[in-house]
Design a protein around this nucleic acid. Structure first.
Lengths: 190, 190
DNA sequence: TCTGACTAGTCAATTTTATGAGTAAGGAGA
DNA sequence: TCTCCTTACTCATAAAATTGACTAGTCAGA
C-alpha cells in the first residue's frame, strides 16, 4: 500500500493531474518511487473514492480537459500515520546484478555491454537530478538551502536519488575495469 | 521473469537446497535479489519442470530430507541469453523515501525515528557484507582478489550491496542532521 | 520438561506491478 | 499532406510478489 502514499506525497507540492503525475513517476525522474501510468490513474481513482484526495475538472481549449488532484485533510492524516508506522527495508532487485552474479559463467563482452549501457543511463539520471536540485535551490548554495529552504522533502529525496545513481555509475565503471583487466590477463595466460 | 535468472545465478556456485536458497534471498543477505521462500520454492519447481535445473533427493538422518538443485546446460544457455538481452533499469521504490518526500508535512521526530532505524539496519547489512567479502577473498587483499580471484561474480555483486547500504546509511545520517538543525532553528524563531 | 528456534518445506489467497492495446485531439516538422 | 510527438486518459490481462497459515521432526537452553 505504499503507492498510495507515494501519490499523496507527490501531490503535497500542489495540485497535479494524473498525466503530470505520470511524468514524475516515470523512467526519467522517479526520485522516490516508480510506477506505470495505469497504476497511477487507478490509484488516483481509489484515493478519491476514499476521500484522501479531491479532484477538480479543468476545462482546456486546445488540449483535452484534465482533472487536478489535491490532498485532503484525511489524506494528510493518512500520511502522518504511514510515517509513524515501520517502513519495510528497501531491497535491491536488479537484472544487471543477476547478470554480474553469473559473471564467471557468461560472456564477458556481453556483460560489459550491459554495464556500459547502465553507466550511461545512470549518468543521464545524475545530470537530471543535478538540474532538479539546482532548480529547487535557486540562487542559494546547497548548505543554505538545507538549513532553511522550503520544501525540503523533495530536495532530500532527490539527494538520495543522486547518490543512488552515482553509486550505480561508479560501480558499473569499476566493474567494467575489473572485468577487462581479468579478460586481458586470462588471455595472456593462454 | 528475472527471479528465475536470479535463482539460476545463485545455483552457479554449487548445488543448493530450496531452504539454503531462501537463506541467501532473505532479509539478511540478498545482495543481488530478494525473494520470499514461497516464491523460491515455486520457481524451483518451474525451473526443474523446464529442465533448467536438476534436483536430487538427499536423505538425512536427524533432519528432514532435502532436494539439492544444480544448473543444467539448458540453464546455462538460458542465463547466457538473459545476459545478452537488455536489462531493465533498476528503480528506487522505498517506503522511507516516500516519508521523507512528505517531510514538510509530517512530524519530524517520527521521521527521524524511521531514519535512525534504517541507518542501523543499513549498518547491520554493511557489517554482514564486509564479512562476506572477507570470507570470499580469504588471505588475499581486495586488489589481488579482483585481479584473479574466483568466483568473481558474487564478489562484485556484494560490492554493489555494500555501496548501496553505505549510501543508505550515509543519507539517513545526513538527513537526520539536516532535519534536526532545521527543527532547532525553527524552534528558535518561535 | 517445556519453550522456542532451526531445518525443510507446502498451500491458498490477495495485492501489486507490468504489458499491451486503444481513444482522441492539436501542433510541429519533412 | 503525412507522420510523429505530446497531452490526457482508459481497459483488460498477465505476471510477480506478498501475506498468512500449516506440517513435522530435532536440538539447545531455562
Amino acid at each position: 500500500m505504499a503507492l498510495r502514499h507515494a501519490v499523496l506525497a507527490a501531490l503535497l507540492g500542489g495540485e497535479l493531474s494524473g498525466y503530470q503525475l505520470t511524468k514524475s513517476f516515470d523512467l526519467g525522474v522517479a526520485n522516490f518511487w516508480h510506477a506505470q501510468p495505469q497504476q497511477l490513474y487507478a490509484e488516483l481513482t481509489r484515493l478519491e473514492k476514499d476521500g484522501l484526495i479531491a479532484g477538480r475538472e479543468v476545462v482546456q481549449e486546445s488540449r483535452p480537459n484534465k482533472r487536478l488532484f489535491q490532498v485532503t485533510d484525511a489524506g494528510l492524516t493518512e500520511l502522518a500515520d504511514f510515517t509513524a508506522a515501520a517502513a519495510k527495508p528497501a531491497f535491491i532487485r536488479d537484472d544487471l546484478l543477476v547478470k554480474v552474479q553469473a559473471a564467471d559463467h557468461v560472456d564477458t563482452e556481453a556483460l560489459i555491454a550491459q554495464l556500459s549501457e547502465r553507466a550511461a543511463f545512470a549518468q543521464g539520471k545524475l545530470d537530471l537530478f543535478d538540474k532538479l536540485l539546482r532548480n529547487m535551490r535557486g540562487e542559494r548554495t546547497e548548505d543554505e538551502f538545507l538549513r532553511g529552504g522550503d520544501p525540503i522533502g523533495p530536495y532530500l529525496t532527490c539527494l538520495r536519488g543522486l547518490a543512488f545513481e552515482r553509486g550505480n555509475r561508479d560501480w558499473c565503471q569499476r566493474t567494467i575495469t575489473i572485468l577487462r583487466a581479468r579478460a586481458r590477463s586470462s588471455q595472456q595466460s593462454i
